[in-house]
Design a binder for these strands. Structure first.
Length: 433
DNA sequence: ACTCCACAGGAAAATTGGGGTA
DNA sequence: TACCCCAATTTTCCTGTGGAGT
């Protein structure tokens, strides 16, 4: 029997326009965003009166529809003006330097002319190219800088300042900028000179509540499945999970998509709460896996070192031990180890990704260091790390733990439980402040 | 009160590597 | 091919620090 036949037979049982739930799909309607859309339209409508629209800063947490709503409004504007508006969308997490932002804008503005290479040109030359291309366009130019906070973080906002300055000066006042950020504190980090340029208009996208998420989900499910195939309870559960996660609609929709896929694969008649719970588990695992798999080589090795070191003892690890084992692994595999300074930064990066939990504590006479623990299942983490071809050689091999301070009996190093307690205290004191 | 461990993490120098020009 | 520019990444060098031991 053909192993695929079981899937063929189950077709249409749950049914199948799942592409409508993909992240890249932009729907033509946005429930509970009518006000925001109207506000944007009001600001941008000045294009029609032949005036440059104000710069706009849009705040809102992830999954509140900032990006897709903005793109939707922009496409409506282009339609209404017969494409007399040129737009350029770019994500500042991907393009996080002035150079990268500017080249992406220039390359995105028109197909004419050569593409600027990713490296090599001087800023002056890009500036010149930018001016000439923008002058070559009729009408207004709207540039959408998504995740603009990433640009502000870098070098204290200098990057953003450079970009704004160049865009404004170069272009006979034809350029408007729409900044999108999920960091509501971004303004306090901005310098006044940037603030005044950027914050001509601002717009806040509040998080969706559970009821709104439910509406959105129901709306998006239209045309995806037949009526009644998704259990009402499943929808409510998805919405409830999403509401807990800061009202993240993207996550809600993803969850439902995965739940439907699971139901489909198992040949279920209905999508119920059970599938949603399964979807949530899968979703979280997928995120971890993706995160680990896309780590740069040395980040992986340091993560591996942390895993291996923790495997050898339930006591907490400190940076020094991780470094020792990291060097040992590099030696074993024939890689040049990075310095401890860099490794320290990588450890911080791993923490930011949530793969590892660290806390700095002083051991008095025995120095001040970070305590580290893997934030998840050791075996699973290890499996993902070892999927890397460069590291698969390490399978089965091991490293002798360079235990430090194991002789300290008086003030014992924290155990796992002690660490949890410690973290809890830290969290509480954070809340207090 | 003072020392000193074992690092954290800032600043600046050095290296790397794409891309240009002569 | 040799050499210059530039940005990004790492290394080098450095100062700072919480608290057990003295």
């Amino acid at each position: 029997m053909n192993p695929f036949s079981k899937y063929i037979n189950s077709e249409n049982k749950v049914s199948a326009h799942l592409e409508l739930l993909n992240e890249s799909f932009i729907p033509d309607s946005f429930p509970h965003r009518e006000e925001e859309i109207q506000h944007l339209v009001d600001i941008l409508s000045s294009v029609i009166r032949n005036t440059r629209p104000s710069n706009i800063l849009i705040y809102g947490k992830t999954g509140t529809g900032k990006t897709s709503t903005t793109r939707h409004v922009i496409s409506l504007l282009k339609e209404a003006t017969n494409d007399r508006v040129t737009t350029c969308y770019l994500n500042c997490q991907v393009n996080d330097t002035p150079y990268s932002v500017l080249t992406t804008i220039v390359n995105g503005l028109s197909d004419a002319g050569e593409k600027i290479p990713l490296l090599g040109w001087t800023t002056d030359r890009i500036y010149g190219e930018l001016v000439s291309r923008i002058n070559g366009l009729s009408g207004f130019v709207i540039i959408i800088l998504d995740e603009i906070d990433k640009l502000v973080e870098k070098s204290g906002g200098d990057s953003l300042y450079v970009v704004l300055k160049i865009l404004e000066e170069s272009t006979l006042s034809k350029v408007s900028i729409i900044g999108i950020t999920n960091d509501t504190n971004i303004m306090s980090q901005m310098e006044p000179r940037i603030k005044s340029r950027m914050n001509q208009e601002s717009l806040i996208f509040p998080p969706y509540n559970a009821t709104q998420l439910k509406d959105i989900l129901k709306f998006r499910l239209r045309g995806v499945t037949n009526e009644g195939l998704v259990d009402e309870g499943a929808i409510s559960l998805c919405a409830a999970i999403g509401a807990q996660e800061n009202g993240d609609a993207r996550k809600v929709i993803n969850l439902m998509r995965i739940a439907i896929e699971i139901a489909e694969r198992n040949g279920c008649e209905k999508v119920t709460e059970k599938e949603v719970y399964a979807a949530r588990d899968k979703f979280e695992m997928d995120v971890v896996k993706e995160t680990i798999l896309t780590l740069p080589l040395h980040n992986k090795i340091i993560l591996l070192s942390t895993i291996v070191t923790q495997e050898l003892s339930d006591k907490l690890l400190i940076t020094g031990e991780i470094m020792d084992n990291y060097r040992a692994i590099c030696n074993e595999l024939g890689f040049q180890a990075l310095t401890s300074r860099r490794a320290s930064d990588i450890l911080s990066e791993l923490e930011e990704l949530g793969l590892v939990i660290t806390t700095t504590k002083s051991l008095g006479r025995y120095g001040r260091t970070r305590f580290v623990r893997i934030n998840g299942d050791l075996a699973i983490f290890k499996k993902y790390v070892l999927e890397d071809d460069n590291l698969s050689l390490f399978k089965g091999k091991n490293v002798t733990r360079q235990a430090r301070f194991d002789n300290i009996s008086g003030e014992e190093r924290l155990t796992k439980e002690g660490f949890d307690e410690f973290i809890n205290k830290m969290d509480q004191s954070d809340d207090d402040s």
